[in-house]
Design a protein around this nucleic acid. Sequence first.
DNA 1: CTGAAAGCGCTTACAG
DNA 2: CTGAAAGCGCTTACAG
Lengths: 364, 364
Amino acid sequence: MTLKEIAREAGVSAMTVSNVVNHNDAKVSEETRKRVQAVIDKYGYVPNMSARSLSAQNSRIIALMLPIQIEEEKLQEIAQVDPAAAESIKNTLADYYSSAMVGYLESKLKPMGYYTMLRSFYRAEEVLELQRNWKVDGCILLMPKISDAENRMILTQSQCPVVLIDRFYPDLPMLSVGSDDYHGGYLAAQECIRFGHRKIAFVSTGAPEAVHCSTIIQNRYDGYLAALREASIPAEEELLLGFHSSLSGGRSCGRYILSLEKEKRPTALVMASDALAIGAVAALKEGGLRVPEDISVIGYDDLPMSALIDPPLTTISQDLDAKASAAAALLKMKIDNPEMAGRQTLLDVKLARRSTVGPVPADF
Amino acid sequence: MTLKEIAREAGVSAMTVSNVVNHNDAKVSEETRKRVQAVIDKYGYVPNMSARSLSAQNSRIIALMLPIQIEEEKLQEIAQVDPAAAESIKNTLADYYSSAMVGYLESKLKPMGYYTMLRSFYRAEEVLELQRNWKVDGCILLMPKISDAENRMILTQSQCPVVLIDRFYPDLPMLSVGSDDYHGGYLAAQECIRFGHRKIAFVSTGAPEAVHCSTIIQNRYDGYLAALREASIPAEEELLLGFHSSLSGGRSCGRYILSLEKEKRPTALVMASDALAIGAVAALKEGGLRVPEDISVIGYDDLPMSALIDPPLTTISQDLDAKASAAAALLKMKIDNPEMAGRQTLLDVKLARRSTVGPVPADF
DNA sequence: CTGAAAGCGCTTACAG
DNA sequence: CTGAAAGCGCTTACAG
């Protein structure tokens, strides 16, 4: 059943049916609208979005782009050795943060009349290609941990509005939604300081040098430094660590801490993610250290599981629902008003105080 | 840049360019192909998928449909009281299972040349509408915990190949991928029996009656019953429990167990999900019971976090990567050969033996 | 192996 | 408020 057939049946032109379907109520008399709608309902007419997209030059599709955090060539090497591991790396929704954000985004976009196209990618070209393939109305980039060069290429060459999550380039006109990571890092360190800690390690994701690569982690680190400064605690280089942001990375971190002589051991760990923190707590406990009696740990993310580990993890919590809403709203504003200037929405975070941060051990 | 323009530039017809773009190599001489490809590369031509879809009557889009596990009206009531809760229910990717499956599916579909459209829905009509809107090539239904009536409506009225995950209707010609839940339930109960347990509860999701609503849970329950029968243990009605499949549902379950007099208390809990099991373990420990010394617990799913709780959860593990591959492959076969008969692919599960199942306490 | 032409089902100025 | 017609950018028989 096509628009034309509905038109013939209702005794109007195709244009009128189109106006009814698209709720351009101002362009159709109420009487005609009702008559046409009745025919639409009678036949269960559903518009063909491809035809619509082709003539309207837009698609009502929002591309949700998820970078695969590795180069395609490296992944192929891994696939040679461990196919299952390679497959799980290609799965861009295996972590709570990405998948919850995608879920929230879809639930916001649907009532706005948009369709969500999900796509993993390695390189910026893939993003630009998809945008043009489908003439997408907008594009949301999640976890753009890819290189700045790729991100900048996407931002400068995209033909549609783009919202970046968790990444901001002040020199580019762009739309971005992020969390106040600086404040988060500050709150985390402050909570440890409040309990009397002075040897507080900051555990970054990846190598310690990586702090300076990721804006997010850098901001958290800066917040951490600010809290130390405020308490007149000098920052020490050995207290900046780095491990892969995963449960096993956290375990490695925990084992590293256990390997340290007691005098050199930090009394509190500010972790860049809950995954890291949970893994570390597990390894620390296995190694005989009690949390928080012997060592305090604070996470970042507030995963659902974080409240359920033993002891429940003290962490920094962000409102993912609000983040997704902000991203969807920002994108829609830009779509509806292409002249809109760039802007960054920064959402606040809060401390979820639970049980992994406690007083400094008496013997320190 | 359009196909026509490329054609003019290359001095060929649009049809030839189309054949080059679509790799119909048999229809183009190698020389022409190269010449055309050079022009395509020069201008970075990207085909317009809407135009392609419109004329080809298909779209290369696969719809990934995720049911919102509640009626729209009820959700609106919840939204009145607790908007945040309503938003998180609408998020169909908040749980590990759905989101990991979606991630794996996207990673399989992309190299097959398909685009993934993600869509949450309340009712079967929404699925059918989306299929027609976009003339999708295929449709995958995840976690179709919606009513059988809705599922059947989708299966019988869909105009495109559909694959159901975790649901099978023997009387309908259909494609389905599932796990061997019967075997999973059997393995779980058997593991408890092996340790000498005889008072083994089965904790379903939702009310106990719900066992009979969900095929998945019913199969696990049947497997559990089979293991009991094999060990000549009579099944008792009080040992069939039901709680919402979530961490907090598991906590409720744990508290319920704690409220029982010791003689009435089961010594082992076969849980229908890890979420349930993890919540239960947490509540049990808070209530002073040791796991597994005082009570054994076995989960189902093998979430990434399950290995990391304390003690690490013994559970039933399924290979989600294989499941996604099977679903994608099945769908593609049906798309390429519409005459293909229905079939069900059942993937095996295995026991992930960790630390939450142990011997029956001496005083029982 | 290649081309010319019709057609997919919409939307959008342009008229009235 | 409504209509007739062109056009969006492809694919697909049909010819040759």
